[in-house]
Amino acid sequence: MMYRITYGLLDIPATDPLRRSITSTRGRGLEDMDGAVICYRIPYCRTDTYRHSFFISGARLWNQLPKHLTVLQTPESFREGLAGLHIKH
């Protein structure tokens, strides 16, 4: 769901309540968007309800993904990349 929101594949704006933080992986600044990685800023949450809401939890999980997964071009390649992850519990 976060992949689809991030890349505009759903009619849910990724700007509210999510705030993007785009960084360059190549160290040359944002003018080289080929190396840009989208992360989300996690706002301060005063309540547990908000802290555990979909958008905050989803943003936190998205930011923890390996960067090579967040820049994949299609939902199918993203899904395949997730299937190859070894997640520790």
Score class of each variant (00 low, 15 high):
1 M>W: 07
1 M>S: 10
2 M>N: 00
6 T>F: 00
8 G>I: 09
9 L>E: 12
9 L>V: 14
10 L>C: 10
10 L>R: 10
10 L>P: 03
10 L>V: 14
11 D>F: 05
13 P>R: 12
13 P>F: 02
13 P>Y: 04
14 A>G: 06
14 A>T: 01
14 A>C: 07
15 T>C: 13
15 T>P: 05
15 T>A: 15
16 D>F: 09
18 L>H: 00
19 R>G: 09
19 R>V: 15
20 R>A: 04
21 S>Y: 12
22 I>H: 01
22 I>Y: 03
24 S>C: 06
24 S>T: 12
24 S>R: 02
25 T>R: 07
29 G>Q: 10
29 G>V: 01
29 G>N: 09
30 L>Q: 07
31 E>M: 06
31 E>R: 07
31 E>H: 11
32 D>F: 08
33 M>E: 15
33 M>N: 13
33 M>K: 11
35 G>A: 09
36 A>P: 02
36 A>E: 06
37 V>Y: 02
37 V>A: 06
37 V>E: 02
39 C>W: 01
40 Y>E: 02
40 Y>K: 07
40 Y>P: 02
41 R>M: 03
41 R>I: 10
41 R>C: 06
41 R>A: 11
45 C>P: 01
45 C>H: 01
46 R>Q: 02
47 T>C: 05
47 T>E: 03
49 T>E: 12
49 T>K: 07
50 Y>N: 03
50 Y>S: 05
50 Y>V: 13
51 R>S: 02
52 H>G: 08
52 H>R: 13
53 S>Y: 06
53 S>P: 02
53 S>W: 04
53 S>H: 04
54 F>C: 10
54 F>Y: 14
55 F>N: 12
55 F>V: 07
56 I>M: 09
56 I>T: 02
57 S>K: 15
58 G>C: 00
58 G>E: 00
60 R>F: 11
61 L>K: 12
62 W>H: 09
62 W>P: 03
63 N>H: 10
64 Q>I: 09
65 L>T: 00
65 L>E: 01
65 L>K: 00
66 P>L: 06
66 P>M: 05
66 P>S: 07
67 K>T: 04
68 H>K: 07
69 L>Y: 08
71 V>F: 05
73 Q>F: 05
74 T>K: 01
75 P>M: 13
77 S>E: 11
78 F>L: 10
79 R>P: 01
81 G>A: 06
81 G>S: 08
81 G>E: 09
84 G>R: 15
84 G>P: 12
87 I>D: 10
88 K>R: 15
88 K>T: 11
88 K>C: 08
89 H>E: 14
